[in-house]
Design a protein around this nucleic acid. Structure first.
Lengths: 117, 117
DNA sequence: CGGTATCCCCAGCGATACTG
DNA sequence: CAGTATCGCTGGGGATACCG
C-alpha cells in the first residue's frame, strides 16, 4: 500500500472497512447471523476459499468478526459479527439509502459522459 | 473486476465511492473547494499525475466531480465537487465519527491478536 | 469440513519521457 | 499547466492440489 492517508481523515477506516470483499462478508454476517465457513462461501458466491480465509483472518484481527473453533469430528468453525462490527450497521444502512436514491443518477451521468465525445 | 456484488446491496456504491484514491480526492475537493490539477496533486501528496487523472476522469464520468476547462495560455483546469458528490458529505462525516470512536479499538484488537499465537 | 500450499497471471501503479 | 504515452514490475487474486 502506498497510502492515500495523506490529506484524508477517513482513509484508515476506509482501508479497514471497505477493502475488497469485506463489505459482502460483514453484510452477510450481519444479515444472516452466525455462519460456518461453507455457508459464507456459498452466500457470497464468487469468492474463492483462499481469499475468504484471508479476509476473515483480517476481519478477525481487526476485531470486526469473531471466529469460534469447535474441535469436533468433523471440525466446525463459526463466524459471527462482533459488537464493534455491528456498530457499522447504521453506516451500511446510510450507504444503502444513498445507493437507493442516487445510483440511478450515477448511471445517467455515465450515459451522458459516454454519449458526447 | 470479479464483482463482490453477489450478496451485498451496497457493493455497487462501494465500488463507486470507495475505490482507490477516490476518498482523498472527494474529501479534498469538499474541504478546500474548487481546485486546479496541481493543487490537488500537491494536497494529496503521494499520488502520481497519471493516477490522479484516471481517478478524476472516473469521478467526472460518475457525476461526482465537475471538470471545467478554461482555454487560456497557459491552460487552466478546475475541478469541483458536484451536487451529487456533495450529497456524500454526511456519510463521510459519519465515517469520520466512527473512526474517532472506534479506530483505537481496532488497534487494540490487532495488538491482542498479534500477541497470542 | 475448513482450511493451507503452490503456481501463475494480469490489472494497476510507479517512473520516465514527451506534448499542446 | 495539464495532461498523454510507453515501459516495467509487483502483489493480490484465481485455479488447482493437497492435508488434519
Amino acid at each position: 500500500m502506498t497510502a492515500p492517508e495523506q490529506a484524508c481523515p477517513i482513509a484508515p477506516v476506509v482501508d479497514i472497512v471497505f477493502s475488497r470483499w469485506t463489505t459482502p462478508i460483514l453484510w452477510t454476517l450481519n444479515e444472516y447471523g452466525t455462519q460456518r465457513f461453507v455457508e459464507l462461501e456459498r452466500r457470497i458466491g464468487t469468492i474463492t476459499a483462499k481469499v475468504l480465509t484471508q479476509r476473515l483472518r483480517q476481519l478477525e484481527r481487526d476485531g470486526l468478526v469473531v471466529r469460534t473453533y469447535h474441535p469436533e469430528v468433523p471440525p466446525r468453525v463459526e463466524y459471527e459479527i462482533s459488537e464493534l462490527g455491528r456498530s457499522l450497521a447504521p453506516l451500511f444502512a446510510s450507504l444503502a439509502e444513498w445507493s437507493q436514491h442516487n445510483l440511478a443518477k450515477v448511471e445517467q451521468a455515465r450515459l451522458r459522459y459516454d454519449k458526447k465525445d
